[in-house]
Design a protein around this nucleic acid. Structure first.
Lengths: 218, 218, 218, 218
DNA sequence: GATGAATGAGGCTTCATTCAT
DNA sequence: TATGAATGAAGCCTCATTCAT
């Protein structure tokens, strides 16, 4: 090992020369930013704190993100993850009864509500989306509208097969995912005051949904 | 000069020396503040703009509110209004079927969702509540928990009378008001992207709810 | 007594229509101002507090004083009082030994140091005089230079009569009143930390002074 | 490029990354602050002006001092300097006659009165000490009480050796340093009106003091 | 004359962003 | 590439002064 290579190694501990290292650093910054944005709100969060939490200097953030706002956007964009895609494929591929698919969707919502990062991003979008159209649009395009399409597909299939006799969620898919939104808000805002069993709530919701879709109004 | 024109003039006075004038000025400031907070978020909203919108000088705000934060709190506190009380009395007094009461609750939610100020306050609580425990607590105490009690009472009555055979909303009253929350968030965040018929959504939700509470899964 | 005269009386409780009442009010304002200026410093003192302490409304102060600064000036100007004049007359009239006159001057300084208002004014002049030439000039003209003249006259008389054989205070009358200045500063700044017996100090100073003026170095 | 030009450049750098540069910048800020505080008073002095005079941007001050108040405190704390320590050692080490030591103390006071910065700090303490206990305490602990101890030691020694037969300054050491205080105040407040030869005054004071300590009242 | 509500200039402090090292 | 010192615009809040009542 030469002196040169030694100093290079030393340098790498602080420098992101490889794509992996770069990606790793981006991830660290975004994780810190999510935490700070979530705690303090976008405006009140300080780049100083984000950098410190990410273990880097303040200026370094600007090597990876143009501005605080772009960091927020990148954050939201990176947080969708694949789960919806998995659900989409499952629905497309499976010939299971619509009830099962709806239950699977419920399980998916429970998963989402249980993941603190997912919840944080949702809350961030709900809180700041009005001010940063980019994140509202992104979230709508990548999450809301895909979720809505999925819901509509499931309901339509259930009606086609005769499983379901009602169709409200085809017109208002929000009625299906509303409890997931409630969980995101509640766990951020009201949890210190009154705990909420988000899993239980979503499970109960799923059962009610199924009864309401199948049932006859007396 | 008529009495009318006199009171008109008094209202337009630049000095609020009467209790009425004072109240009127407080209202004007809070209205402007709600608007600005709602558009820009609490942190980013500027006292300058609030004052300008209220038609007064910057310093005047501080004659009525100790600080920006207290203004937010007063805002949230003033916005509950009586409607819940009206519902509570109706439920206590009426011997109508639980279905009717639940439909009335649905109508109440529709009303709330239709009132832009109510929606704004809700969104403000959801957005800033985590940072300002006072407003989260206030809203929980005055709105959430009273709404939850109301819901539980209605469901319990329906089950007692045999109208309802299921009880999920007694454990999770959130399942009843979830669409109201969705409306508040959606109309602020996603409406420019995709319109939502909040009234229709809540009405549909009410119907599903009733079927789910009454119905037997086939 | 008519209704008219009754209301006039009522009005007089709050209005200063007579010269006496006016003077009384001026005094009240200046007393409050001295207190506030002294506690908080001229800049930090608030007209609000001064008015409140004087038992009047803020705007009323401006009926008696053009501005905060003029209030300070009037304050300092009003605070000399007659005592120096009394001393001057005594020295001019008396044929007592210079030692007695110097002791009388010492007693005068003790009196001044014991009067909180006098001390406050002195401290105010020392603190703010550089920023408000008017008060420095006024105090110099009415207090400092008259005191210095008095001291010089006493020393000169003592030297003429053979009582005193030294003359430093003729060149530096400050050496005579220095302890009075120390008392004013100390009692304001260091008294909470270490008490000072100003009377004892000035008395001791007077004795030393006399020895120094009379004495032969061995 | 010579070493000289290098350090010159370093000193002029716009970034203070070395300890020396940092120290230099702290010094520049404190110098500017002393000037502004001294001219305008603590409250009225503007951070803007301090920064401008120090040749930096307003925000930069806050990289070195938490607040305006801490800047004042640091200022006072940094201004003691070693001179008292030198005197203390001299008195402890020397076996010179007490008269010589007292004359040395006089020379020390003359030095202090001649140093504009020292005078300014003293005046600042006298003016603002009541409002900022930290600076009063600091100055009392580091200057006043050490000076008093020194004075007492000198007088005690002189009495032990028979040089001095009086003891007032042991009870009131203020009587020894009073003229230094007078000089600080006078040069700030009354000098534009009437010049004072502080050196002459203190010298005269020292001679009187010695006579008063040695002399017998006739 | 007396009041106190209203004004708005001004100051301390914060913090996103830049840039010399 | 990484750093963190420096910048300076911007915002909350204060308060001397004014003026309608």
């Amino acid at each position: 090992m030469t002196i040169w290579s030694f100093s290079q190694e030393a340098a790498m501990s602080k420098q992101a020369r490889t794509p992996q290292a770069r990606e790793e650093r981006v991830r660290a910054i975004m994780a810190a930013a999510l935490d700070q944005f979530s705690h303090a709100g976008f405006q009140a969060a300080r780049l100083d704190d984000i950098a410190a939490q990410a273990g880097i200097a303040k200026g370094t953030v600007y090597l990876y993100f143009e501005s605080k706002e772009r960091l927020l956007e990148a954050l939201v964009a990176s947080a969708i993850g694949a789960p919806l895609e998995a659900m989409e494929k499952a629905v497309a591929a499976s010939s299971a009864p619509a009830s099962d698919l709806l239950r699977a969707f419920g399980a998916f919502m429970i998963q989402a509500a249980d993941d603190p990062d997912r919840r944080r991003v949702m809350h961030l979008v709900f809180s700041e989306g009005a001010r940063f159209p980019a994140i509202a649009q992104f979230h709508h395009r990548e999450v809301i509208s895909r979720g809505a399409a999925l819901i509509r597909a499931i309901i339509a299939r259930g009606r086609a097969s005769g499983e379901f006799v009602h169709d409200e969620p085809e017109r208002f898919p929000q009625l299906v995912f509303a409890p997931a939104l409630v969980a995101a808000v509640w766990l951020h805002v009201f949890d210190p005051i009154e705990k909420l069993d988000a899993t239980g709530m979503i499970a109960a919701h799923t059962e009610m949904l199924l009864r309401a879709l199948k049932g006859e109004a007396k």
